[in-house]
Design a protein around this nucleic acid. Structure first.
Lengths: 242, 242
DNA sequence: GAAATAGTGTCTTTGAGACAATATGCA
DNA sequence: TGCATATTGTCTCAAAGACACTATTTC
């Protein structure tokens, strides 16, 4: 940064959270109902303004996660998604929002009696289709968050962050199918994820109640990137005509 | 965002740029010399504080690109890299910096007589190795920018942004080799990039002066993502020194 | 001619995807 | 038993990488 002269900035810095989870095989995002203008009564991402007392951005994200979603921030995958600062995105003035993407395992309804009482899980389908209008540019932020999650499923063990600490390969497949919005062959998926080194660690001699044959249980391994990756099925079949 | 009470924020918002280019087969980044404290005389990324008069973040990035690098912002690939807001990253107070990654073709030395007079291209090797100390956390920002560029080479036509409007496949290979820091087989590379639909468009019946056989010329095609990708060699193995 | 760079062919290994076949539980 | 889910096997095709070989220029 340089040493420009500048007028005293009247900029407010906010932190907003895109918290994704899986409910009933569908991807959901946590939204709150706004209590005041602008966009009063409208659905919006949980978030808030930065505390100026030397609070770091990531620390602020964790604080909002705790305050608004009543989620234990520890053990939750959290990463910076992007910063949104269009001049007119907030009618109150210049608000720049740093957004974070959080991935959570299956979770109960937000607890009443807390800041999170106004919060609820919403299926992302209703948002991307425009059925559920959102405050500010939060629809764009959510779309970016979903795309980020989709992309990271290919190369990172992010899918395990949607699962319980111990899970079956079928559980894992449901994550991929829900986030990507596709159907995958269970047999090929099974072999593929098992072949990636350090992706899944078998939990010795365990099983689980279901209808058919019991499934082996796994935990997330130490891998940070997947080699080879789990490729997302072709969503753009285009060919060159030379 | 919610409706928290908050103390009036004393936050300064800056925009910093990681401008990468290729010079003599090595990746370089544009750095300026700081004129005032803190870090006076130290190398730093070009950038500056946001003008508060409803200037968008991307617009601010373009403005700094023009002011400090004297580069024509049009035709330059520019994307948001990340936002850095650690509480103590700037001794003057709370400065949150939104960073952008810019990719430029081979460029001349920064023009004298402008804001860019203090600017110079520096090899990234000297920075990641710690030989050239940087102001603030700019070493981390540059490292993140390089990693972003490396990753995007695999799945996007970003490499063409390092090239002139018309280029040979050999030129393109040099980009991949410089950014990834590896050696690639020219014959496999040749076939591979040509096989990706809409990546390269042949320029009809052109050639270029060199020592050996003339090479065909290409321009960037309309592809936004590469199917199949150009895979980065296993970087757990060898790296090239020099 | 030799040297240098551009471009093609071919072989081997590996992974992706389709899908048959087998295993093991529950009603 | 029959059904449902889990797991294994096999086949085909495409892609990655190694590398011999041909093509076209300058010297």
């Amino acid at each position: 940064m340089t040493d420009d002269t500048w007028s005293p900035p009247h900029i407010l810095l906010a932190v907003d959270l895109v918290i994704l989870t899986l409910r009933e095989t569908h991807l959901h995002v946590l939204l709150v109902e706004r209590g005041i203008e602008p966009y009063r009564g409208c659905a919006a991402l949980p978030g808030g303004f930065l505390h100026n007392d030397r609070e770091g951005l990531l620390a602020a994200a964790h604080r909002e996660l705790d305050e608004e979603a009543d989620l234990d921030a520890t053990q939750l995958h959290l990463e910076q998604l992007g910063t949104y600062g269009d001049a007119n995105r907030d009618p109150r003035g210049r608000v720049v929002s740093v957004t974070y993407l959080a991935i959570a395992p299956r979770l109960p309804e937000p607890t009443a009696g807390t800041d999170a009482a106004r919060a609820a899980w919403r299926p992302v389908d209703a948002i991307v289709s425009g059925e559920l209008p959102l405050a500010f540019d939060h629809d764009v932020i959510i779309a970016d968050g979903i795309e980020r999650a989709r992309s990271k499923l290919e190369h990172t063990p992010l899918a395990t962050a949607f699962c319980e600490p111990v899970f079956t390969i079928s559980d894992l497949q449901q994550v991929y199918e829900a986030v990507w919005g596709v159907d995958l062959d269970p047999r090929n998926f099974y072999r593929k994820v098992q072949k990636v080194p350090n992706f899944l660690l078998p939990v010795d001699a365990e099983r689980r109640v279901t209808k058919g044959r019991p499934a082996r249980l796994f935990t997330a391994g130490p891998a940070t990137t997947l080699h080879p990756p789990i490729p997302r099925p072709d969503h753009t079949a285009s060919r060159q005509g030379e």
